[in-house]
Amino acid sequence: MSGSRKASIVSGYDLVQSLGGRRAATRPAAEAPPPPRPAPAGSVALPTKRDIACPDCGWESHVMGRQSYAVCPKCRKKIDIVDYTVDIDFSGTIATAGAVRLAPGGIVHSGEIRAAIVDLASRVEGGRIVAWHRLDLRAGAVCQPDHIEFRDLRLDAGARLAFTCALACRRLDVAGDLEGEFVVSGEVFLRAGGALRGSLRCAHLTVEDGASLAARLQVGGGDPVVPGP
């Protein structure tokens, strides 16, 4: 360090002015500062809200944002909120408040699958599938009524299901082929191309043009059945 260094006072204003003037003089017109990035459309400040239910006690609650697990406020057990996909042979247990997709090519031999939404497109030979919110049946799904429990049922076009016993549910949406005896406390939608046979007792029925309906019906003023697993 030099011993003859002379102390000097640097004015911040002068420094900024000097830098600004130098930059304005040296920056060419082609290197203009890039425009500010526009804010992404649709962004919200609040995280998304997701309704969940405890697979053990059935207590319904909600979580905010992306969480992989939560704690049930009633029974204090850990709730898994992960989505699963099963496309191979399965004989285990899955308990989640998320969704489980049983893809074509997989076979459920035994065990239990409990989820909020179960998307079934595979073969179920045993075990138990409990969809406490909704069960979606896709084309190619093969299952017996003894192996499934649900609150809402939705049949995709191409799916076929026949129940040998009376079934109660909250909501029914049929775009495929469904046969059996149903008591629905809520709405029944029969989409174009869908078919419903057997008997139906529901509070509300909507049939689209092109649907097939060969059943005994009682629509309006049904008993308040509380379905669910």
Binding site: E179, H204, V207, A211, A214, Q218
Partner: peptide
């Protein structure tokens, strides 16, 4: 057949878009 929400219906329905008589319900899938 077209049914709107709100209809009160008690009876039997036999509707088939293709015009073919529907098959009798089977008790085993």
């Amino acid at each position: 057949l077209v049914v709107e929400d709100g209809v009160a219906f008690v009876g039997r329905s036999e509707v088939n878009a293709s015009g073919v008589a529907p098959a009798a319900p089977q008790h085993s899938a």
